Amino acid sequence: MATLITILIGFFAAFNLSILSVFSYEPAPLQDFCVADPSNQGSVRVNGMACKNPLFVQADDFYYSGLHIPGDTGNSYGYRVSPVTVYQIPGLNTLGLSMMRIDYAQWGSNPPHTHPRATEIFTVLEGTLQVGFITSDPLNRLVTKVLQRGDVFVFPVGLVHFQRNMGHSNATAIAALSSQNPGVISITNSIFGSTPPIETEVLAQAFGVDNKTVHLLKKKFIHV
């Protein structure tokens, strides 16, 4: 990093340019941990939340209990995600990983969505699940497989993916993600339930349907 800064200073000097500021980053951790402190809004954030004073860090900052509890799948999709991100474990702050439990009722599905900031590695604990992701343009190729207990599958960062219970019994999976806050974008909810809404004419043209169909879809997803 010092070499890079030296080169930049030399470049500016050679062309008689003023050096207003130099921005740099450190890809490796500079400390043992940076426990998130949501109450501290005045401190500098290191690609995450402000750091708690390490003198006040406790074991509970790195602990969470609850993934043994099945999620309530009594919704229209028949699935439930129980996340463990930096919001559940403050000690994950800046460490670049998180996890979640997903429960599925019979024939329940986690509909097409993306995680904009994380690759996901997915492990089936119980049941039989069809999983898949779609490659980017121009191929838009569906990569799909049926998984059994103990099987592992990877969803690359940013790609649209889904899971569906094949209906033989309830199903459960654990997923690990390469971000402390991976984010999630549900395809149907984001397109038809955005605030403010996308113009009907834009969606009608994009999906090759009439305005009436778009209105019906908006009514279904606007409050999801």
Rank of each mutant, 00 (worst) to 15 (best):
T3N: 12
L4T: 05
T6Q: 11
A14Y: 04
A14E: 14
S21N: 10
D32R: 10
V35R: 10
D37L: 06
S39A: 13
Q41D: 07
G48C: 04
P54A: 11
F56G: 11
F56A: 15
F56H: 12
V57M: 04
A59E: 12
Y64Q: 05
L67Y: 11
Y77R: 09
G78F: 04
V81P: 01
P83Y: 09
G91E: 05
L95C: 01
M99L: 15
M100K: 08
R101N: 03
D103L: 02
S109M: 11
H115F: 04
H115Y: 11
V124G: 09
E126S: 12
L129T: 05
L129S: 02
I134C: 00
T135R: 10
T135M: 06
L142V: 15
K145G: 01
L147S: 08
R149V: 04
G150S: 10
G150F: 01
M166F: 01
M166G: 01
G167P: 03
T172M: 10
A173H: 09
S178P: 00
S179K: 03
Q180V: 02
G183I: 02
G183C: 09
I187E: 04
T188K: 02
F192K: 03
G193A: 05
P197L: 07
I198P: 00
E199H: 13
L203W: 04
A204L: 06
Q205G: 12
A206K: 10
T213H: 12
H215E: 14
L217E: 06
K218C: 00
K220Q: 14
